[in-house]
Design a binder for these strands. Structure first.
Lengths: 111, 111
DNA sequence: CAGTATCCGATACGATACTG
DNA sequence: CAGTATCGTATCGGATACTG
């Protein structure tokens, strides 16, 4: 977990530091719907490799945005869900959804 | 400029594709305040290299999010500003600002 | 002033093989 | 099932030198 001092002064830079890459917003988007298992992410996020998925899940957990629960069963079952902090990202995701939709609509209309 | 077909189906993925990297949100954050010149970005975005700044400004221009105006003077003056599409990113930036602020506050309180 | 060109290291990412 | 380990590639990004 990062400390307060390690984060940039600018809040936008802080957000970028925590979720600003190719995969994290997609992982978080999925978790907004509820709990998800490792294998389910691989289906719902086209193109993500096992390694990239693992690394990003670990980083999100480390930063306190998601929670990981492993059930000691055979075969093993691991569930991921948003923490309260992670859930508070919803306004960002909603804004991204709305903007992405509008951008594609505009392009499709060649306006 | 990308075509509609080249963008991912998911609107969140589309947004990530267009502004989801280390520097673009910071450039856009600055332009929300108004027109800005090349050299001014270098002061207001600590740590950005000339190359990274140039590449990201070109990409944002290519995707229709910012506009570039070069004034034929000596010494040359170039101004960047948001397009209408770029300005429509404001809700995302606002949400990022609010979330980053809250995240840092929470960390500083060790809650 | 606002870039471009080049080099190079760091990091991100994907593919494959293997494991508790 | 849910990973870890390893390797190779690709992209990102910083430093430096140079230019209209």
């Amino acid at each position: 977990m990062l400390t307060w001092e390690e984060l940039p002064p600018c809040p936008v830079a802080t957000t970028v530091r925590l979720i600003g890459n190719k995969w994290k917003p997609l992982i978080i988007r999925d978790l907004m719907e509820g709990t998800k298992r490792f294998g389910e992410f691989r289906k719902s996020i086209p193109g993500i490799s096992q390694k990239a998925l693992t690394e990003n899940l670990r980083a999100l957990e480390e930063d306190g945005l998601i929670l990981r629960t492993a059930y000691p069963e055979v075969p093993p079952r691991v569930e991921y869900r948003l923490s309260e902090t992670g859930e508070s990202l919803k306004p960002i995701l909603d804004a991204m959804t709305a903007w992405g939709t509008a951008y594609k609509k505009r392009l499709s209309q060649e306006s």
